[in-house]
Structures are given as C-alpha cells and as structure tokens.
Design a protein around this nucleic acid. Structure first.
Lengths: 216, 216
DNA sequence: TGTACATCAGTGAACGCGCGTTCACTGATGTAC
DNA sequence: TGTACATCAGTGAACGCGCGTTCACTGATGTAC
C-alpha cells in the first residue's frame, strides 16, 4: 500500500535532532493518513525523521506507543472537523432548529472527515491491542475541550433542552446516532460500498441523518 | 493475536493429500474465525493441513486468493445467520407486521453474527486489496440464494408491499438500514465501544432497530 | 490384462524482505564547582 | 570565567522472526495402447 520512503531524509548538521519526538509523531500521522493504522511503522517513521531506527526508543516505548499517540492526534482531528461544522451554523435559529442542526452538523463533520481523511479516520477508530481493557479510549479533545463522543452528547442534550426529544429517550442515544453515521462511514471508506456509493455519498449521508433525526 | 500452530499436523499415509483445497480453505476459515482477515496466513494454513508451504500453490494462486475464498465463505455464513433469524418468525402475522418483523430479523441476525463470529464478520466486510475495482463483492449467497445485501433488500421490499413504507422512500433504503446496524456492530466488535456496551448490547441493538424502523 | 508414460500433487531448500527490538557505544550538552 | 563530569540523545551492528513466493525435484495416479 504505502511504499517505503525513497525520499532523502532531511540532512541534519547537529548530532542532536532537536525535536525528534515531534518529528516521529508527525511522520507517524503522515503514515496513518496514507495507509491507516497498520502503516504506522516505527522504522519508516525514523527513516522519515532522518534518524537511526533505534533512536525512536528514546521517545516512545514501543511501536504501539507511537501508534497510540497517532491515534490520539487522529481523534483530535475528528473532533476538530465536527467543531468546524458546528461553527458554520447560523446564529439566529430557534432553539429547536439549532439543536437539530447541531446534531446534523456533528454527523456531517464525522462523515466529511471519514471521506477526506480515510487513513486517519480508520486509525482513530480501529481496535487497539493495547487498550483492550480500561475505557479512557476517546479521551482526546478538540479545541472546545470535548472529544467526538462528547460533542455528539452535547448536541443531543440540546435536543432535549429544546423539547425536541423526550428526556427519557436521551440515555444511550449517542450509541444509536453514532452507529448510524459510523456504519455508513465504514461501509464507504473501508468496506463493500467503496465503489457502490461515491458520487451520491453526500445525498445518502443527509438521508441517513434524516433517518436518525426522525428515529431518535 | 493467534499463535502459530503447535498442533501436530494430521499424519498422512498417502503422498497425495486427497482434498487439500478444502483442507486449506477450512484452515483459512478457522484462522479468520480466530483472528480476522489478517490472520489468514498461507504458511499457517499449510501447517494445519500437514503439508509443505508451497503445496498451497497447486490450489490457490496466492495468499490473496485464499483470503478471497475465506471471505466468500464468511459472507455465506452471514447470510445463513440472517436466514436463521427469519425462519423463527411466526407465520400468522399480518403482512405489515410480518414485513416489519422481517427487517428486524435481518438486522438481528447481522448483529448476532457479528458478536458470535467476530473474526468471520470482520473478514466478510473488511476492505480487500483485490476487489478495489469491480463491484461483485457481496456475491456469495446463503441457502435462499440471496446474499446478505439482497436479504435486506427483500425485507425492505415487503415493507413497501405491505404499505408500511412509501415506495418513493424505498430506493437506497438498504444503505441507511445497513449503515445503522453495521456501525453498531463495528463499534462493539472492533472499535471503541468494545468495553462500553456489552451486557446491554441486546437492548441497544433493539433500540437501534426501533430507530431504523421509525426513521425509514 | 499388462505396461509405458504423461500428468500433476506435493516436497525440500532456498530467496529476499522488512519488521521490532536489544546491545554496547559515542558524542554533544549543560550543570556544579 | 573555566573546567570536570554526569546526563542522555542518537549510532552501528546485529538478533530472530515469519512471511510470501520460486525453483527444480519426486512420487503416485490413471489413461492409452
């Protein structure tokens, strides 16, 4: 999938690199962007940073640790995409409309991100051997301080506050909305609908959000 | 994840294996069952069949070809799970209720399979390097002769026939229903909800199907 | 019915690949005196 | 202000691993005569 780097690494005049931690992380993010989580390869990251393979171990305990860091950055990027979509909402909506539009914006941001940054999307939400136990998975926030899951939760809360959604249906509603949007993203990005949908994606996405809005 | 085989391979008295094609396929399915698509490793399959590694090439052109065969078998198993669920429906429902129950059964079968056979589920719906172009992906049918996608389509057709769903909303409805169910499956099976949901899975699944039913 | 021979399933050995990781090291930095 | 020295970031070489795949082969089968 992603080829080994053939780029001449940045020549360094100093013995110390200066900011190898950051350089490795950025190389890792670039690898994930192009090839998803399995493309995050320690040796390739060091190659791109212009450094011996084992130098990475001064900054990351293992390949898995680097991957975790890349994953965290990916989640942050998902949150940012959602926030960007939320920021486009007109100010002068009624509370009910604003709440509805917020939920849509969160979903639209998610789908947009999945299509635009497939590799990072897959990295953000792929299974990790590491965190099999413990739950602080989604713990990386965007500018608002909220992670993707929390952004969705906040939008759903508005729905209740505005009286659009009965409070008794609120608990667990994140899982339902998230499932719908996540499923479409996975089918298109990584699954059997890669070639089926495509141009109609925008439209299908909006219909899906209609379904969620009506069905919640 | 899945360890190399330490099992003594079945001792063979004949020079010819007899049915190596089938043996390799079954070994591949077992590997996928335990570890998903990336666990389908040619050498391990030959080890389990008690045969030299290169013997596989008499029956499969490449590792990718074996993986395709395993994928086809996995899809067939998904279809079978759906059919099993459909078979439990009471006969004496009204057409409308039967149609609604059929859609639910298809979804329930999908979710059940994803939970019970995680590895096969992931294998069935993972991206393949091979079929990046061309669309005959889901072309493996269950006993009814329909593949999972077609089973869902048939259930939705019944919804229209019974007058539960307006015909104009029918086109593309597969994508919406499938997305919802697929998303929940992926989040739970391979994603960040692995540890969050779990016991409540049954209940969340039914609420999700409520949402789909109402939202379509 | 018996035998030569083509066919082809499975073997043994080897290839090159790239990976993660460990070891003992070297060289620059910056701090204590 | 100058110097000894501890610290620690990066190096060079090597390890073992398991993989997919290719090569020239060997042995059993079954078909043609």
């Amino acid at each position: 999938m992603t080829a080994r780097s053939t780029i001449t690494p940045p020549v360094r005049s100093t013995y110390r690199h200066g900011d190898l931690h950051r350089a490795l992380l950025e190389a890792g993010i670039e690898l994930a962007r192009q090839g998803g989580p399995e493309a995050v390869v320690l040796r390739e990251a060091t190659r791109r940073a212009g450094v011996a393979p084992n130098a990475a171990y001064r900054h990351f305990a293992s390949r898995e640790a680097l991957l975790q860091a890349v994953r965290a950055a990916s989640l942050q990027a998902v949150a940012a995409a959602m926030e960007a979509e939320l920021a486009t909402l007109p100010r002068k909506l009624s509370p009910a409309d604003f709440a509805r539009a917020s939920v849509r914006a969160v979903g639209t941001g998610y789908l947009r991100f999945a299509l635009a940054e497939t590799g990072l999307f897959r990295t953000a939400f792929a299974a990790s051997d590491k965190l099999l136990q413990g739950t602080p998975e989604l713990s990386t926030a965007g500018a608002s301080g909220l992670n993707p899951f929390e952004l969705l939760g906040a939008a759903l809360d508005k729905l209740v506050e505005a009286g659009v959604m009965p409070a008794k249906r609120r608990p667990g509603a994140e899982f339902l909305a998230w499932s719908a949007v996540h499923g479409l993203a996975m089918l298109v990005v990584d699954g059997p609908l890669r070639n089926v949908i495509g141009p109609q994606m925008q439209q299908v996405g909006q219909r899906l959000l209609d379904m969620v809005e009506k069905g919640l």
